[in-house]
Amino acid sequence: MQIFVKTATGKTITLEVEPSDTIENVKAKIQDKEGIPPDQQRLAFAGKQLEDGRTLSDYNIQKESTLHLALR
């Protein structure tokens, strides 16, 4: 499925993911596309910060959802 990640600079990244993917996997995909190390990424959805060990389906993130990326 496709999801979107909006960066602090307003850029939107499109990612191909599975509901079973962990947040860690998603951060690795962002690193592949943007070169941002996962340990510098903070992802949020619906106002909640997402934890590495959880999956997209844990957070009820569905196709075409938009996550927000902040850098630490």
Rank of each mutant, 00 (worst) to 15 (best):
Y59A: 04
T55M: 14
E18V: 13
M1R: 02
R72M: 14
D58P: 01
T22A: 09
K6P: 01
N25C: 04
L56F: 03
T12E: 14
D58W: 11
P19N: 11
Y59P: 00
D52Q: 07
P37Q: 06
L50K: 00
D52E: 10
G53R: 13
T7S: 11
Q2E: 10
K11V: 12
V5Q: 00
V17A: 06
D58Y: 13
I30Q: 00
F45L: 09
E24D: 07
N25R: 12
T66S: 10
K27P: 00
Q40E: 12
K33Y: 14
K29E: 04
R54L: 09
T14Q: 13
R72L: 15
H68R: 06
I61F: 02
M1N: 04
Q2L: 15
I61G: 00
N60K: 05
P19D: 10
N25D: 08
E64N: 10
K27D: 00
K33A: 13
D58C: 03
D21N: 11
A44W: 12
I30S: 01
E34V: 07
D21G: 05
E24K: 09
D58G: 05
G35P: 03
K6R: 12
R42A: 12
K11G: 13
I3L: 11
G10M: 09
I36C: 03
D52N: 09
T66C: 03
K63E: 08
Q31V: 13
T9K: 06
I13W: 08
E34K: 04
G53F: 12
R72P: 14
T55W: 05
P38E: 04
R72Q: 15
F4M: 07
K6G: 05
L43H: 01
K33R: 15
V5R: 00
K63L: 11
E16P: 06
K29D: 03
D58F: 11
D39K: 11
M1C: 03
A8S: 12
K29F: 06
A70Y: 08
A44T: 09
R42V: 13
I30Y: 03
S57M: 15
K63I: 06
T66H: 14
S20H: 11
D32N: 15
T12A: 05
I3K: 00
K11Q: 12
Q31H: 11
A46H: 08
D39N: 08
K6D: 07
T7P: 07
Q62A: 15
S57P: 03
F45N: 03
T22L: 08
T12Q: 06
T7E: 06
K48I: 14
P19R: 14
T12Y: 15
A28G: 04
G53S: 14
M1H: 07
D39C: 04
G53I: 10
V26N: 00
P38Y: 10
D39W: 10
G35H: 05
I3S: 00
D32S: 12
T66F: 10
G47D: 11
T55V: 11
K48L: 15
N25S: 07
D39A: 10
F45C: 03
A44H: 15
T22S: 15
Q49G: 10
Q62H: 06
V26I: 13
S65V: 14
G35R: 09
E64G: 06
G53M: 10
K63Y: 11
T22C: 03
P37W: 09
T55A: 06
K48W: 10
A44G: 11
Q40L: 07
L15C: 02
D39T: 05
I13E: 02
V17N: 01
Y59V: 03
A46V: 14
D21T: 09
P19A: 09
L43S: 00
R72F: 12
K63P: 10
K6T: 13
Y59H: 04
S20G: 08
G35W: 04
E16C: 04
E16T: 14
I23F: 03
Q2H: 12
R42L: 12
I3H: 00
T55L: 08
K33H: 10
E16F: 08
D52G: 06
D32M: 09
S65K: 05
N25Y: 11
T14K: 07
I36Y: 14
E51N: 06
V5C: 03
R54P: 06
T7Q: 09
A46T: 07
T22I: 15
A44M: 15
V26E: 00
T9F: 07
A70K: 08
S20T: 09
A28C: 04
L71C: 04
S57A: 10
S20D: 11
Q2T: 14
G47E: 14
S20E: 14
K6A: 11
Q41M: 13
Q49L: 15
M1Y: 15
G47K: 06
I36E: 03
L67K: 01
E34P: 01
R42F: 11
G47A: 08
E24F: 07
Q31K: 04
A8G: 08
Q40N: 13
K6N: 07
G10W: 05
P19S: 08
E64S: 08
V26T: 06
E34H: 06
Q49K: 06
T9V: 14
N60T: 07
E51T: 04
Q49H: 11
K48Q: 15
D21S: 07
I61M: 03
R54S: 13
R72T: 06
K6V: 13
I30D: 00
T7W: 07
T9W: 05
T66V: 13
I23K: 01
H68V: 08
K11W: 10
L43V: 06
A28F: 10
A44S: 10
K27L: 04
S57V: 08
L50C: 03
K48M: 12
E18F: 15
G35Q: 05
N25K: 04
R72E: 13
Q31N: 13
L15Y: 02
F4G: 03
A70R: 05
R54T: 11
D52H: 08
I23T: 09
V17I: 10
S20I: 12
E51L: 05
N60Q: 11
I3A: 01
V5F: 03
L67R: 01
E18D: 09
K33G: 05
D52I: 05
D32C: 04
Q49D: 15
G35Y: 04
Q62E: 12
I36S: 12
Q62D: 11
K33Q: 07
N60I: 05
A8V: 07
K11H: 11
P37G: 14
